[in-house]
Amino acid sequence: MNIQFKKGVLEICVLSVLARKDCYGYELVGEISKRIDISEGTIYPLLHRLKDVGYVTTYLQESAGGPSRKYYRLTEAGRKEEHEQKEEWMRFAASVNALLEGKNDAAD
């Protein structure tokens, strides 16, 4: 699949996973790459951007039998953004699917 495609939707994927639960980086990368084949390294720069704009925050938490891990959590603004982007994506995907399947009733 086209790489620009994947990268364009990466942000909503990350926001969506974090909306369900807080994740540490490796866990988040695993969740995403389980479904989308992408260079896993690009998820970290994305997380930093999301942190910069205030959609996510980080906190450290002890893990069982190991050094503490850095967890990412959605902020209130991040939650709102996730909601908006999700709605937008759902509408868009529904329209594209309708077009691809050649349905004619989408216009009315």
Binding site: I3, Q4, K6, K7, G8, E11, D37, I38, S39, T42, L46, R49
Partner: peptide, 10 residues
């Protein structure tokens, strides 16, 4: 946010 470094990977 849309363009990546290598276009032929993945």
């Amino acid at each position: 946010s849309v363009i990546t470094g290598t276009e032929d990977e993945a």
